Simulated scan of single mutants.
Amino acid sequence: MNKSLSAGLCLLLLCPIGAMAGGPFDGTWKVDMSKVQMPKKPDVLVLKDGMYECKTCVPPVSIKADGQDHPVAGHPYFDAMAVQVVDAHTVKETDKKGGKVVAASTTTVAPDGKTAHVEFSDSSNSSGAPVTGTGELKQVAAGPAGSHALSGSWVTASMGQMSDNATEITFKEDGGMLSMSSPTGQSYQVKMDGTEGPYKGDPGISAVTVKTAGKNSMVETDKRDGKVVAVLTSTVSADGKTMHVLFDDKLRDRTMTFEAVKQ
C-alpha cells in the first residue's frame, strides 16, 4: 500500500482534532471509527512492466517494483521506498527514513479486482509504538491493460482495527492557551487567537494556528515551512460529549469527516 493510501487510513487521524477546549471541553477524545467518512477523491496507482507509480502522491512517486530500496524525494515522512510484487494480487511496500523502516503495508486485491484489503504498521510520525490498522479499498476505475491488479483508482471504503494511539488525543485550555498532546508524540501549545506557534513531533507539520469560530467551534491550520497543509474545523456538541471534525487536506486536495467522543 502506498503512502498516499495509508494517509487515508492513518496519517489523517494522527493530525490533531481541532476542539474548543475549556471547562467540559478539556480532556481526552477518541475517534468513533464507525462514523469516519473517508475522502471520495481516489488515489491512482499503476504497477506495470516492473515499475510502480503513485500518480496522486504529492509529489508523485515512480520507482522500480523490484523489492529493493529506491530513493524518494520531497516526502517528509520517508526518503526511500521498496515495492515488492508478491503475486498477481498481493503487493508489499516498505518505507524508510534515514535507513530505518518507518512504515510497512501489505495490500491484497480480491480475485474480482474490485476491492482490496490492507494491513499496515506506521511509525513515520510516531515517537512511540507504531500505529497499526487495516482498511478496505474499493476500485472506482481499472488500471491500464496488462497491469497488476493493484493498478487503478482506489478509495478507502472502510477502516478497522486501528490502534488506540492513532485515535486518541488530549486537550487542555488555560488562560487562552490551548495545549494538545497525543500518544504518538505530537504536541503544541498556542494562543486561541490565531497566533502561530511551533508544532512538535510530526515531520510533516512545523507550525500551527488555532482560532475560535463561535461558541463551541474552532479552526486549526497546520503548516509546513510556511505552507498550509491542512485545515481542521471542529464543533463540540451542546452536551459536550462529541466533536464533529471536518479535515481539509490542502496538500492532497481531499476532505474527510469524523466524530470524536469525550472519554
Rank of each mutant, 00 (worst) to 15 (best):
Q139I: 12
T108M: 04
F120C: 06
A213P: 07
G113M: 02
V86S: 08
D202L: 05
V210G: 08
A213G: 07
V190T: 11
K172A: 12
G113I: 06
P203H: 11
G74C: 08
K138T: 12
A145D: 13
V118S: 00
G204A: 04
A166M: 06
E259R: 10
V109S: 01
V44G: 10
D174K: 14
D26P: 01
L11I: 14
V109Q: 00
L45P: 07
Q186L: 15
E93G: 10
K138H: 13
T170A: 11
V102T: 01
S124L: 04
G240P: 03
E259V: 13
W29A: 02
A104Q: 12
H70C: 14
N2M: 14
M159D: 03
E53Y: 15
G98H: 02
G152A: 03
G133M: 04
G74D: 02
V155T: 04
E93N: 15
H148P: 11
T90W: 11
V118Y: 01
V190D: 09
N2D: 15
K227E: 08
D225R: 03
D95M: 15
E119Q: 13
A110K: 06
H70W: 11
G23K: 06
G67P: 10
K96D: 00
S62W: 12
E220A: 06
P130M: 09
